[in-house]
Simulated assay, not measured.
Amino acid sequence: MLSRRHFLRVAAAGAGAMLVAPQLVFASAATDRRFVFVIQRGAADGLNIVVPYADPAYTSLRGALAIDTDKAAKLDGTFALHPSLAQTAQLYRSGQALFVHAIASPYRDRSHFDGQNVLETGGRAPYQVKDGWLNRLVAQIGPTRGDSAIALAPTVPLALRGAAHATSYAPSALPAASDDLLTRVSALYESDVQLRGLWTSAMNARGLAGDASAKQDPASLGKLAADFLARPDGPRIAMIETGGWDTHSAQNARLGNQLKALDTMLAALRSGLGPVWDKTSVLVATEFGRTAAANGTGGTDHGQGSVAMLMGGAVAGGRVIADWPGLRNADLYEGRDLKPTASLDALIAGAAAESLGLDPQRTAAALFAEAGTTRPMTGLIRT
């Protein structure tokens, strides 16, 4: 039974509320390493995030959307980083970030819902697999402490749904509920077989967060994620959802704002983790990319290949990994999209395995069994 003293302690952070966006998901495991997956929902434009400025077709295809590389951080002789990712560029220069370009999941159509389903489940086709690869990753890292997963969101994202138990936490913008109210609700649920466990789990999650002033802006969100991950008894796996990447119109301003928010959140995460950052890897990926050419409304439409980012204190960074297909019309996928030449499944399997000290081949088989043979990328994390 949940005592009043214990209940008041874990409920001290106040009542939670639904997050609008972004959202976070956590899993607690018996390992000292951390792995964070950031999903960019809406199909992020990889060509304007990591800009192939040396490709002669880039500027003509993009027109007014082409990024001014005089203002961008040059990564090497071929690629530059969007100016809004200023702090990420610093990570790259310090060898703590790398980028994988022309990358995609096995999905080759252009539906957000189907593409996200394939990305999060690890299947080859939409709705082929019912649980998420991140949930299966939790099972790979051995015995867990307390709740096996926690979501800072109204619902657990598909990538973390599965056999592992999940609870939820959401920072609230509303006034904190009184101790008396929370105690009465606890007493009400105590005799309910179905709700008692859910309520207790939610209160334990809120007690772990321990932050009644948590907000939903990027810096606060990054700090809150760090507060969870830095705790010795806290989670070791996290998922952060970001939305708003579907830039059909007014792309330059919208993408710039999105990237600045992402950059701010990641910087706050790094700062909040302190020395734990050296044991942390953060993977950022989207369901698919966008068309190589600009459309008629100052944006781009649904495409194929995009870019993924991997950063952290343990990352063997300072490089762009790309089997670059080119942007000439003959080189494009179906004459319109950046052709995928790298497997997102392979990147996820390799990054997750090396980050958590797992065998890459076994991890790939566990996470992407339905996708066929996946050869994981290796050499991503320093030993």
Rank of each mutant, 00 (worst) to 15 (best):
S94R: 14
V284D: 04
R270N: 11
L358Q: 06
T200L: 08
T121Y: 12
I381M: 06
L327C: 03
S28D: 13
A268E: 08
T291Y: 09
D55Q: 05
Q304W: 09
L338F: 00
A173F: 10
L47C: 01
D263I: 03
D337N: 13
R319N: 10
T200I: 11
F37W: 12
A27D: 11
A342M: 12
Q258Y: 10
G132A: 08
G162T: 01
G272S: 09
A308K: 02
Q194V: 11
T363S: 15
N257Q: 13
A151Y: 05
K215N: 12
S111H: 11
G146I: 02
T286V: 04
D227R: 15
V51Q: 05
A314K: 12
A80P: 02
K215S: 15
G303V: 00
F37K: 02
R4A: 15
G234P: 07
P235M: 08
L61A: 10
A364F: 06
L65M: 08
A214E: 07
A371I: 05
A202D: 08
L75T: 04
R108G: 09
D55N: 08
D45Q: 04
F37D: 07
E241V: 11
A371N: 06
P22V: 07
H101D: 15
L327T: 00
Q140N: 09
L358E: 03
S271H: 12
R145Y: 06
G318T: 03
